[in-house]
Amino acid sequence: MPLQQVAPVLSNIQIAEGIFLLTLESKEIAQLARPGQFVNIRSTDGSLPFLRRPFSISHVHEDSIDLMFNIVGQGTRMMASRRVGDTLDVLGPLGKPFGYEAHFETAILVGGGLGVAPFPLLTRYLKKHSKKITTFLGARTSRHIVSTNLENIQIATDDGSSGFHGTVVSSLESYWGSHALPGPKIFGCGPTPMLRALSETAQKLHIACELSLEGDMACGVGLCQGCPVETTKGERKYALVCIEGPTFNCNDIILR
C-alpha cells in the first residue's frame, strides 16, 4: 500500500560524476519498501516541471530511503539543489518488487549506468535469503561508477578506464565463459538498449532473467495508462510498467 508524504531531505550528495544520492526521511516508506520498487517524486510545488518523477528505491535505513539520480532536466536539477531540511512530496513505495526469494542460488546483478540504483537494497535482501551474488556494473568511465553496498563487483567501462573495456552485457558474457555461477538468475536494470541486449544474452544462455524497466509515467499508480510495455503474456497487448512492473520476467515483455 503506497503512501503520500512530505519527506524532509536528510542529505543530498554527489557520489560520482553527475550522480547524486538523496536521502529522505520516511520511516513508513523505509519499512514498506522492497527491492525493485520505486517512489514518484514531485520536485516542486508549482507546475514547472508539472509531473512527478519516478526513482528506484536504492536503499533503506531505519527511518529513511536513499534515491540515486543524475541531472537530466529541470526536475532532477531542482532535486539536486535541495538541501538538508528542504522537503519533497513522495508517493510510494510503488510497483512490483524483484523476485529475490525465487528458487535460484546465484544472483547476477547487471546494472548499466544509473541502473545500479536498486541494487544496494536488492543485495541486502539477497544476502538475507543466503543467495550468492555477483554484480556487473557498466559505466561510461571509471568516474561514473557507483559501487557502494554491493558484492563481488565486476566493472565494465565504455572507455576502458576501469575493468572490462566494453559494455556490461559483453563483460557478463565474457565472465560467464570462464567462471561457474551455479543456479543463476539475472537481475537487470539500465537503459532500454542494454536491457534488450541483456535479455537476448539471458535467453541465449538459458538463464532466468528479471528486468527493471523505465517508463514515461505520470501517476505511477495505474491511473494515466501512460507507461505501456508490450507483453507476450495473455490476451492483452500491453502491460503497465508502474503497477505490473517495473520488474518483469524478460520472457514476458518485448522491448522496442
Binding site: S47, L48, F50, D216, A218, Q225, G226, R236, K237
Partner: peptide, 25 residues
Amino acid sequence: KPRDGNPPRRIVETPSGMLNSIGLA
C-alpha cells in the same frame, strides 16, 4: 470490446501540462 490503446510513447510532459495519446485503452 477491450482496447489495447496506442503504442508508446503515450505521454509527454509540457510546460504546465502534459500531452497524452492513450488511445482509450
